[in-house]
Amino acid sequence: MSLESTGILLVSFEVIQSIAPLIVFFTLFQILFLKLPLSQLIRLYTGLAFTAFGMILFLHGVNNGFLPAGTQIGEFFGESKKGFLIPVGFVLGLLATLAEPSVRVLCYQVEESSNGYIRSNLMLYTLSFAVAILAAISMAKIIYRIPFLYIIVPGYLFVLILLWLCDKDFVGIAFDAGGAVTGPMAVSFLMSMAVGVATAYEGADPVADGFGLIAMIALAPIIFVMLLGVYIRFNGGQKNVQ
């Protein structure tokens, strides 16, 4: 059996192992309480099957595509193109967030729930720019050996200040956005790139310097969305923010 086939089988087993308890729980709930009609059950189980199949394809693609690609890009720039690391981190952070499905879902939900008060495009560009800035800072952290605590602690102290100044409509959105941007695109591509940079960069430690990127990316939208909320609050709370 080929290594590729073994990889698919292993991923398939992991996905089935993960979602099987949810299916069992839903089935018991259906038998005891919901009692949905057969036609609706068929649609639900068909959706679960497609979900499982999609997860298998995605995780197999991550293992064979995104992770190696991110690592190779990081090692290339870490070895020979150190001066480009910060702008490359910015660009890749921007593109990864624009491509992140969970970010787009969040942006659509924000616009719908706010009745157009907060436009989805504004949220998308704010989150993308925020992640790009923190991804660039993460590259600078590796290059200049800046301790992780020197970035993350002041960042969250700044968040505590913004909590008092921000329009309250934006507080919950900001913290949810922190989870949305740390989806599969950021975790699989940007984190592997950071580890690759730290592995190849002379004097850097892959464990101490390569990790922490996801925590910084999660912090980015919290700060920038709250800054947007501060602007809205002190700009008269203008409606239909675009």
Rank of each mutant, 00 (worst) to 15 (best):
M185Y: 08
I232L: 10
I161G: 07
I146E: 10
S5P: 02
E79I: 03
L163S: 06
S114H: 10
G54V: 02
L162P: 05
P101K: 00
V15L: 12
G54M: 10
N121C: 05
F33R: 05
S18G: 13
G7P: 02
R119Q: 09
V15D: 14
A204H: 06
S12T: 15
L94T: 06
V207T: 10
V241D: 04
A218M: 14
P21E: 00
V103E: 07
N235L: 02
F158Y: 10
L36P: 09
G78V: 09
L67F: 13
Y150M: 03
L227I: 11
V197T: 03
L92T: 01
A220Y: 02
F33V: 04
L219R: 02
F84G: 07
I31M: 13
L94E: 00
K35G: 04
I151C: 00
K35M: 04
V15G: 11
A130N: 05
N64C: 07
G89M: 03
P154E: 06
L157E: 09
M185S: 11
I73H: 01
F13H: 10
S2D: 13
L22V: 11
A200G: 09
G93K: 07
G61T: 02
E79M: 14
G89P: 01
S39G: 02
A220H: 01
G210W: 03
A135N: 05
A180E: 00
L38M: 14
G61Q: 05
F211L: 09
L228Q: 03
N63A: 12
E79Q: 11
F77N: 01
Y201G: 03
I73V: 08
P87K: 12
A220L: 03
S102T: 14
S113H: 07
E100V: 02
P184T: 09
F211R: 12
Y144P: 01
R104P: 03
C166S: 13
P101I: 01
I23Q: 12
N115C: 05
V62F: 04
G236P: 07
L57V: 14
I8F: 15
A200C: 06
Y45R: 09
P184L: 13
F29E: 03
L41D: 11
A49P: 00
S114T: 15
L92N: 04
I19N: 11
L36V: 13
G203F: 06
F189T: 13
L227G: 03
Y201H: 07
L22I: 12
S138A: 15
I146H: 03
G116N: 04
A69M: 13
E79G: 09
L163E: 06
A208Y: 07
L227Y: 04
Y125C: 08
G203D: 07
L127Q: 15
E14D: 12
G93C: 02
Y45A: 11
E14W: 11
G210T: 07
L149H: 15
Q242S: 12
Y231S: 00
M216N: 06
P101S: 04
S192R: 08
T126V: 12
S5G: 10
E4D: 08
F211K: 01
